[in-house]
């Protein structure tokens, strides 16, 4: 007797209200994942979730690095020499960007992007990924800036005193050390981003929660689709946490004594 037949029989029992609790659970589980090969929809959703995360991450890191570099370069201008006016304007733009993005809820940002700015677009997933990337950029920028600022100024001075240029000092001395210092915070931001992709379903972005909600609408049963989605997120996050730990251990090789 295969699963499909079992399901048919137990569903009849359930409709006659004669099924035991575990037979009923099996029927609900079957409807959520197996009937009409619905598990494929979760997989498709996971795929989209990962692609959206990757796109948002790429946008976020590029924006974050740009903003952090502008703001750090601006703040590290030497006292006593005239300030660079271009850098001043760029710094102001960056400050406004970080303030607005960090000061408004992600959900509102997604709704504004989906229903106002890109109201005519049908590519909801791309709009969602773009919004997440812009949002993430503000946080990544502050993480990177914190990392650059936290490094002992003596490191920069040692590099410059040897005749290295500002760029070379940044590239070989400051950034590698700052990167190691901010990796935990960056990993955390990545995990937040991965989970926040679920929010783009509000404007029709077709990631995992979108499909789970569709299945709820089909079967009038929310338990397994939602718990299933939660478990999948949890597994993804655990995989990435593990990978991050491996990377951190590798970068720590210069700390061994």
């Amino acid at each position: 007797m295969d699963l499909a037949q079992t399901y048919e029989i137990w569903r009849e029992l359930m409709l006659d209200q004669e099924a035991t609790w575990w037979q009923e659970l099996f029927v609900r589980f079957y409807q959520a994942f197996l009937e009409a090969d619905r598990w494929q929809q979760y997989l498709e959703g996971v795929g989209v979730t990962l692609v959206v995360t990757a796109m948002a991450l790429a946008i976020g890191v590029v924006l974050g690095v740009l903003v952090a570099v502008v703001r750090t370069a601006h703040d590290q201008q030497r006292p006593g020499r005239p300030k660079n006016p271009v850098l001043g304007v760029l710094n102001l733009i960056c400050k406004v960007y970080v303030t607005v993005i960090r000061g408004t809820p992600m959900m509102v940002q997604i709704l504004i992007m989906g229903m106002v700015i890109f109201a005519s677009s049908r590519n909801y997933t791309a709009v969602g990924a773009l919004t997440l990337g812009i949002n993430s950029g503000a946080y990544v920028a502050e993480i990177i800036r914190g990392g650059l600022m936290s490094l002992d100024i003596g490191q920069t001075e040692a590099g410059r005193s040897l005749g290295l240029t500002y760029i070379d000092t940044m590239r070989f001395i400051v950034v590698p050390q700052a990167f190691k210092a901010i990796l935990p915070a960056l990993g955390n931001e990545f995990i937040v981003l991965l989970k926040d992709t679920s929010l783009i379903s509000i404007i029709g972005g077709q990631e995992m929660v979108y499909f789970a909600k569709n299945i709820v609408n089909r079967t009038f049963d929310a338990l397994f689709p939602l718990v299933g989605a939660a478990v999948i997120y949890l597994i993804l996050v655990m995989i990435f946490t593990w990978l991050q730990g491996k990377l951190e251990r590798r970068l720590r090789q210069s700390d061994r004594r």
């Binding site: 001075e157 040692a158 410059r160 005193s161 040897l162 001395i173 590698p176 210069s254 700390d255």
Partner: peptide, 25 residues
Amino acid sequence: PKVDIDKVRRKMGMVFQHFNLFPNM
């Protein structure tokens, strides 16, 4: 201000109180 200070510093070595070796290398 027109002098390339990086070039000048190549001819002056400096040793700091706190060593300031690069720990990542």
